[in-house]
Design a protein around this nucleic acid. Structure first.
Length: 583
DNA sequence: GATTTCACGTA
DNA sequence: CGTACGTGAAATCC
């Protein structure tokens, strides 16, 4: 039966959970109500458009498989993403997530192991029954073993196709999602909404990985030429150019002294020979010696060029910029403690000079949108501090804060940041004390995070993400380490909540942007870059702002001031041809 | 050959 | 004015 018809007959409605599993050959299985279906992936697109269920995936790999096949789903519930939210940590494979949901000791999850040569693939229909016989745990029809764990035969992947198994796997995914939903409801608050947006952010990540960032090769090569010279013809020429760059620094050295500039140890001796004594050679430390000896400025200049040459040079361009003018890397929806998005291949730490080369395709424009002062605004929201929330009504939040504290703006900003992230020197001074008096609720929130983290107690972000502070290596009594743990904890709650708000905004923009042909092409912690046909650019720019208002209203309710914190979030939004044009 | 340290880019 | 992450080269470990 046709999938849409089957879903309709089962009474599946918008937002209902539908299990989804995909085989490498493009076969998918869908599980809903008491039924399950298997067939070609294209049917899922049709079902998504017709009914828009919330597709349950075990891991983001499903989306990563489907997107290149042209299947882009509206929403999902990703068991791995929700597992990370509920339980923290990085590991989130199906067997591990399932064990947590069933309350089984996660340390004893059966290893997925490796297939021995010649062993039949469980998911190969032809060998279906032979393969599972004699193995512990699950059966060909049941992934759950008698011990309650998922069978390694099912979890180790590398599937060929068996529609029956695929359907079973999709059904079990939906069961896992329902268990997760129940666990999240117990937590109350924002957790279910966060689970949805974190999951859908995984769909966005799969698309970002597939689509890439538009970059103009000619402009990129121009930027490189300006910094490190033209593309070398061969290895010999490259070595010569490198030596020439080194020479610019070494000619400033005292007579007879030389060094390998790529060796920090040798650079330190080199500087010492020039009369500059430093404990290490980091740029911020060398900065104050810039005028002590000409070699320092030359070295700092060399470092900038060397960074571009080694990490973002012609080799980088050749490797990651496709013939279609798209720079690609792998995206993850939530990495590390705070749950920020990450990207590989330099997409998140590209030198500012290269932004000039990020240019919309012909007939298209980029929409650049930056959240303004996101962290203090997030603090106001998550702590529920009414006084700080009042300050968020200003475009520049630090002006009212400075007025409240009776200090100038730079002092107010430092005091705020010191409070949010902890400080290693001094005790905050007068401005710090006034912060405590002016914003006691926000400060108590931060103190509580700091105290819990110091004591090794786990934390939860506003959106419900567990930040693990207990366990291995967290019991040190060393004063410096304890203080660092405190800073880590308070930072994780602010950075983490900001990441949750950002992703909710991003997936809202992703959904609303579809009719305009607007695609998100870069996410950078508090900044979104959209690629959109020129004709729709104005609409898309307004849409991004509207989506922020909508997201903020759901995420930090009470904008009217009657209830909740009523925090205002702002974004700087501009329509540009190149990423470097804005601001 | 794998892991750690230093350094630096982004937020 | 602190935290996070990814990357590359050298240094170090095994």
């Amino acid at each position: 039966m046709d999938l849409v018809t089957a879903l309709r007959q089962a009474g599946v409605r918008r937002g209902d959970l539908a299990g989804l599993a995909a085989a490498p050959d493009g076969t998918v299985a869908v599980a809903f109500a008491d039924a399950a279906w298997a067939g070609p992936a294209a049917a899922v697109t049709a079902a998504d458009e017709a009914l828009r269920p919330r597709w349950v995936t075990w891991t983001p790999e499903t989306a990563q498989q489907l997107v290149p096949m042209g299947v882009r789903l509206a929403t999902c519930w990703d068991v791995a993403a929700v597992h990370r939210l509920l339980f923290g940590g990085w590991r989130a494979d199906p067997g591990f997530a399932w064990a947590h949901l069933r309350g089984l000791p996660p340390g004893q999850v059966p290893a997925a192991g490796s297939r021995s040569p010649g062993e039949a693939d469980l998911f190969d229909a032809a060998h279906e029954h032979d393969a599972a016989s004699g193995t512990a745990g699950g059966t060909p029809d049941n992934p759950v073993g008698p011990d309650g764990y998922l069978s390694p035969e099912w979890t180790r992947g590398g599937w060929a196709i068996s529609p029956a198994r695929l359907r079973r796997w999709a059904r079990l995914g939906r069961e896992a999602a329902e268990l997760q939903g129940a666990a999240l409801h117990d937590g109350g608050g924002m957790a279910v909404a966060t689970a949805r947006s974190e999951s859908t952010a995984e769909l966005l990540c799969a698309e970002l990985s597939a689509d890439g960032l538009p970059m103009d090769r000619t402009t990129a090569e121009q930027v490189l030429t300006g910094v490190i010279g033209p593309r070398p013809a061969g290895a010999a020429e490259a070595a010569a150019m490198r030596a020439a760059r080194d020479g610019e620094v070494l000619r400033q050295a005292p007579a007879g002294v030389t060094a390998d500039l790529r060796s920090p140890v040798q650079v330190r001796s080199l500087l010492a020979a020039a009369g500059v004594e430093v404990p290490d050679t980091r740029a911020w430390r060398l900065e104050e010696f810039r005028d002590s000896h000409p070699i320092v400025a030359a070295l700092l200049e060399w470092r900038k060029a060397e960074r571009i040459a080694t990490t973002y040079g012609y080799a980088w361009l050749d490797e990651h910029l496709g013939p279609d003018g798209r720079l690609r890397g792998a995206w993850t929806g939530s990495d590390g403690a705070a749950g920020r998005m990450t990207a590989s291949n330099g997409l998140h730490n590209m030198p500012a000079a290269m932004r000039r080369a990020v240019i919309a395709a012909p007939g298209h424009a980029l929409i650049r949108a930056d959240l303004g002062q996101i962290e203090p605004r997030v603090l106001a929201a998550v702590s529920g501090d009414r006084a700080l929330a009042a300050a968020t009504s200003a475009d520049d939040l630090y002006l009212p804060v400075a007025a409240q504290l009776g200090v100038d703006r730079p002092t107010a900003k430092v005091a705020m940041i010191a409070a949010m992230y902890g400080q290693t020197t001094g005790h905050g001074g007068q401005a710090g004390r006034r912060m405590r008096a002016a914003y006691p609720v926000a400060m108590a929130y931060l103190d509580s995070a700091d105290g819990s983290a110091r004591a090794g107690r786990d934390l939860r972000t506003y959106g419900g993400r567990l930040v693990r502070m207990s366990g291995g290596g967290q019991n040190s009594a060393d004063t410096a380490r304890v203080a660092a743990r405190g800073r880590y904890g308070r930072n994780a709650l602010i950075q983490g909540a900001a990441a949750e708000l950002f992703k909710m905004w991003a997936v809202t923009v992703r959904a609303r942007g579809v009719p305009l042909g607007a695609r998100i092409v870069l996410c950078l912690h508090d900044e979104l870059l959209l690629h959109v046909p020129c004709d729709e650019a104005e609409k898309a720019a307004r849409l991004v702002g509207d989506c922020l208002e909508e997201t903020a209203a759901r995420w930090a309710p009470g904008g009217g001031g009657a209830e909740g914190a009523g925090v205002r979030f702002i974004a700087d939004i501009s329509i540009v041809r190149s990423w470097a044009d804005a601001k």
